[in-house]
């Protein structure tokens, strides 16, 4: 549709994904939580991060990325897998 924008969008995607993964691992290490290897089909409920960990992740990502997609999407389908979670943030950035 907008081929001219593709490079920057994919750059955003890479950086969003990397940011989410690195914060995920950092928070798990901080809170001494044992987590599963991070893959797109990993169920968030089985990832090993607890609710406080996810709450912290959302707050950190808001500071790193400059937005909180949970605050802006009114009627949201809560992400189930890590892949959903990453896309949820990517879509909010696009």
């Amino acid at each position: 549709m907008y081929p001219a924008k593709m490079p920057s969008e994919s750059a955003v995607s890479v950086s969003v994904r990397l940011t989410i993964f690195s914060e995920f691992e950092r928070i798990a290490a901080e809170q001494k939580l044992k987590i599963q290897p991070l893959r797109d089909d990993l169920l968030l409920s089985e990832s090993g991060l607890d609710s406080l960990g996810f709450a912290t992740l959302v707050a950190r990502l808001e500071d790193k990325l400059g937005y909180d997609p949970f605050a802006t999407s009114g009627d949201l389908d809560f992400p189930v897998t890590l892949g959903d979670f990453v896309r949820f943030y990517e879509n909010a950035a696009a």
Binding site: S51, L52, F54, A55, T56, V58, A59, E62, D68, F70, A71
Partner: peptide
């Protein structure tokens, strides 16, 4: 407090 979708609020 910062509002948070998971825990209602979180400490910042």
């Amino acid at each position: 407090a910062r509002r948070n979708p998971i825990t209602g609020a979180i400490v910042v």
